[in-house]
Nucleic acid binder design. Structure first.
Lengths: 278, 278
DNA sequence: CGTGATGTTGAGCAGCATCAATTTCGGTGG
DNA sequence: CCACCGAAATTGATGCTGCTCAACATCACG
């Protein structure tokens, strides 16, 4: 499964070793992780009132009125693994809110190359292209795990946005997160000349956003995260060939910079990784 | 589909004949308001009646009440060319709205490389990082021409967003544009292996967003746009070295794909450019 | 035990960065 | 008008890096 316990272990605000589950109400600004509590995949929240995607301001934390409005539109669906939510090039008329699970977002070129833009987490918005009318999706979204997804027709979404400031606000923040992710991708692809730099940067960016904390993480503590991608996908995220990724990972492993066990990836010393292969 | 009649968001503004009438000449149905006409920072034209695309509603097109609110916060400043608006790494506590002029947005790496993310146009938001509390700017913004810029403290901006749905909405759309630009950057850097492909794609993306229309442009008509960057900057946009850009531009010129005169760049046959160097 | 997906490793080569030299061009001042 | 300067562009030579092709290993699964 894709879920995990709260990894914000190094939060400056909580030095005590006991890792408590995030309280359901206000959270400190360092606790903003999007972690859905492990739940049975079968039972889905019928509405947003009882949904608890905590942390970053999410659609689950709207004011009562907005929540009612928001609940009244769209439908919540469950999707199994490896389902395509929408495909690049097809008309975009719905916005999708990811409530649970992970979704791979890719773009492709005419000559068959693939670019993995990001792995969306609960609270993220998919299908942003639908904000504009009569445009086509510029990316393909495909589930990496069983997912719960709320699908909202464009017009409904905009209507509710107009009526509820906080819906617009949350939307703006969600889009800002999308932006952040695209920005980091572009940045690392442009700034790093060496393949090692690209891969290192990809891993670091991912670890930092995946662990949820926006806090500047202490650079010398290991970060561990769930690696849902194979080497080919990782390569298409870093702009590298499959083989290069393989070679580099063994190199990183030999140098003790990363550990891979099962489907977890651990960056033993993020600071050194960053410093050596900038 | 309640909004079916007028897809343009700013259809909500009732009074259409206010202030300045739309300047003559801008009549295309997919028009946009961002053109670098270096005249005084005037009210931007508002005519969305015939706008078939949810283009770029700007902050100048708010409802009267929101406009008053929005006017009451922040200050409008003029900046000369080559002024640094904010610098990567410094604390971000203000949001900037670009009212007139062009602004270069860059990110840098520790080893001195530079990445030019985009050239912002009027209506764009700068300093998005300030949306989150206590973060630092991740980019540097520097004027490319004399600019008019509205600077708004974070808290004020968020307060007005919360009070006015349409401010939030316009903001969300502006952020979506930022996202789009970052996405295109990442996409071309990742998908194109050859230098020629990267440069061609950079020019094409730029021409298409700069000429304003979101409409799919006929691929065989020349596009011309104002090239405000030298080859080095263009290189840092495409992830290429200065020399490679030079070589490629002469090649494109020899093949009749582009023309450069003064500071205008013309893509004679966008379709062929794209097809040949994908 | 076959099959397909994934990961590992090697060899060769094209393409681009880098360094370096030269040219063009706009501006500035004599 | 010319001389001079600096920034930007052009062009050449060279070396390295990562892509490509290819063979093989490993693993999960039936």
């Amino acid at each position: 499964m894709t879920e995990r316990t709260s990894p914000c272990l190094s939060s400056q605000l909580e030095q005590s070793g006991t890792a408590l589950p995030p309280p359901p109400g206000r959270t400190s600004n360092c606790l903003r992780l999007t972690r859905s509590t492990p739940r049975r995949p079968a039972i889905l929240p019928r509405n947003c009132q009882n949904c608890s995607v905590l942390g970053t301001p999410s659609f689950c934390e709207l004011s009562p009125k907005a929540l009612r409005d928001f609940d009244s539109i769209g439908i919540c669906r469950h999707r199994e693994s490896h389902a395509v939510l929408f495909h690049e090039g097809l008309p975009a008329d719905h916005l999708l809110i990811l409530c649970a699970g992970r979704v791979k977002v890719t773009a492709s070129s005419s000559n068959g190359r693939l670019f993995l833009l990001r792995v969306a987490v609960p609270g993220d918005i998919l299908g942003l292209a639908a904000l504009h009318e009569q445009t086509a999706h510029r990316v393909t979204a495909e589930t990496l795990s069983p997912c719960t997804i709320k699908s909202i027709p464009r017009a409904d979404f905009i209507r509710v946005m107009k009526a509820n400031p906080d819906v617009s606000l949350i939307t703006a923040l969600a889009i800002a997160r999308e932006y952040q992710s695209a920005f980091l991708s572009a940045r690392r692809l442009a700034l790093h000349t060496s393949a090692a730099g690209k891969l290192a940067s990809t891993l670091l960016d991912w670890a930092r956003t995946d662990d949820g904390s926006r806090c500047p993480t202490p650079a010398n503590l290991p970060i561990s995260f769930h690696m849902q991608l194979n080497q080919e996908e990782l390569g298409s995220m870093a702009g590298l060939s499959r083989e290069t990724v393989s070679r580099l990972l063994t190199r990183f492993r030999r140098e003790g910079l990363v550990d891979q066990s099962d489907d977890r990836m651990t960056l033993n010393n993020p600071g050194r990784l960053e410093a050596r292969y900038r």
